[in-house]
């Protein structure tokens, strides 16, 4: 589904990604872990097409297409979804309006009919349950005045509505209390299907108790220095990152 080969990327002329290779197959859950500043969020943003990052080398294909050649909105329409670490506020635009606009763009791209506000409300009624949110949430401006937890739940709500084939969760667990974490994780799990894949970017192992990964990758200084199964996450929890960094440093 997603194939990254020797990807390098800069931000403001500073190299952040220094040769990432990663393959994600349908139905898989990959966790990307690593210390602060290792390039985890950069990787997520580059896959989604943020214009602030400059790809300097390597290739990324998504379902056989050259992803790096696509605008961010085309990537979204193709089925890539990024749950933002810091969801952006759009004052004055209701959540319902924003979500329907996004939903219709993605339907259009798939060759499906657009839906009117009434039809959309029916869609939403189902989706709201997934993240335990009420309809009142739809009338509020996008993320404006939302608590940290509400913002993250709103991201998962959007994911539920847009039904991406590849969802990237960028530190979705940061700033969540234990209840919100459970709701968010359960939401993600409910959306799991054999043809959908997930990349979970996280600093802590905690989220992976709820969203169980098939693979864990450790990113440090712009490279994947170790890949393994879910047990790798537990080992990191116990031993921290330092022992891996030492090994990586020694081999570099």
């Amino acid at each position: 589904m997603l194939k990254i080969d020797n990807l390098t990327a800069n931000v403001a002329d500073k190299q952040i990604l220094k040769g990432i290779s990663l393959a994600v197959n349908p139905g898989e859950v990959h966790a990307i872990m690593g210390p602060n500043g290792s390039g985890k969020s950069t990787l997520a943003q580059v896959i989604a097409g943020h214009p602030g990052y400059e790809v300097t080398g390597g290739t990324v294909t998504f379902e056989g297409q050259d992803l790096l050649d696509m605008d961010a909105e085309v990537r979204a329409q193709a089925g890539i979804f990024l749950a933002f670490q810091y969801p952006v506020e759009i004052p004055g635009v209701s959540n319902a309006y924003f979500l329907r606009a996004a939903y219709n763009e993605i339907r259009k791209a798939r060759g499906e009919e657009e839906v009117d506000p009434m039809e959309f409300l029916d869609v939403m009624t189902e989706k709201l349950k997934i993240v335990e949110m009420t309809e009142e949430m739809l009338q509020r401006s996008v993320n404006a005045g939302f608590s940290g937890g509400e913002k993250k739940r709103n991201e998962i709500l959007q994911m539920a509505v847009l039904e991406p084939t590849l969802a990237i969760l960028d530190e979705t667990d940061s700033g969540l209390d234990i209840d919100a974490l459970r709701i968010v994780a359960e939401g993600v799990n409910k959306l799991k299907r054999p043809d959908r894949s997930t990349i979970v970017v996280t600093h802590y192992q905690r989220l992976l108790n709820y969203i169980v990964p098939d693979y864990v990758h450790v990113l440090a200084q712009g490279r994947i220095i170790r890949s393994g199964g879910k047990e790798l996450a537990l080992e990191l929890e116990e031993r921290g990152y330092d022992w891996l960094l030492d090994t990586a440093g020694a081999s570099a």
Partner: peptide, 19 residues
């Protein structure tokens, strides 16, 4: 953020300004 949800830049600006 809007583009990542499938809206093009033009749509995004008009939405943000309308809000």
């Amino acid at each position: 953020y809007c583009k990542q949800r499938g809206l093009n830049a033009e749509h995004a600006i008009s939405l943000i300004v309308a809000g």
